[in-house]
């Protein structure tokens, strides 16, 4: 099954502390390499902070564009990985190893498989 590992973290805590970014970067590189070596990594990228987010929606034929993220939350979506795992236990195992799990939260979501037979 394909799973998304959605990494939620408190941006403010990271932004105010550039050293912290330096600390976790090698861990993320090692983590990404480990997933690649295991042959389960399908994709994944970090995201720019929500300060650079733009929200778009269409209402009665008009496009509304708003500055900022979809919702103000304590922790923000900071990046994702997409992996191929045999089952939820395996996906949880990889989520637990993510450096972001230490101070943030990893949401494990199965993908909606659109295959037709």
């Amino acid at each position: 099954m394909r799973y998304m590992l959605l990494i939620y973290a408190n941006e403010a805590a990271v932004q105010g502390n550039p050293d912290k970014v330096k600390d976790v970067s090698p861990a993320y590189i090692a983590y990404t390499n480990a997933m690649r070596d295991a042959g389960i990594l399908l994709g994944g990228e970090p995201l720019q902070p929500t300060a650079y987010a733009t929200t778009v929606r269409s209402r009665s034929g008009k496009t509304e564009v708003l500055e900022g993220p979809y919702a103000e939350t304590r922790e923000q979506l900071a990046g994702y990985y997409m992996i191929e795992a045999p089952d939820l236990d395996a996906a949880i195992g990889w989520a637990a190893r993510c450096p972001g799990a230490e101070n943030g939260t990893i949401e494990v979501r199965p993908l909606w498989e659109m295959r037709a037979s």
């Binding site: 795992a85 089952d87 939820l88 236990d89």
Partner: peptide
């Protein structure tokens, strides 16, 4: 079914 919870003894 959807989350892929496995059927196995840990």
């Amino acid at each position: 079914r959807q989350a892929g919870i496995p059927f196995r003894v840990p």
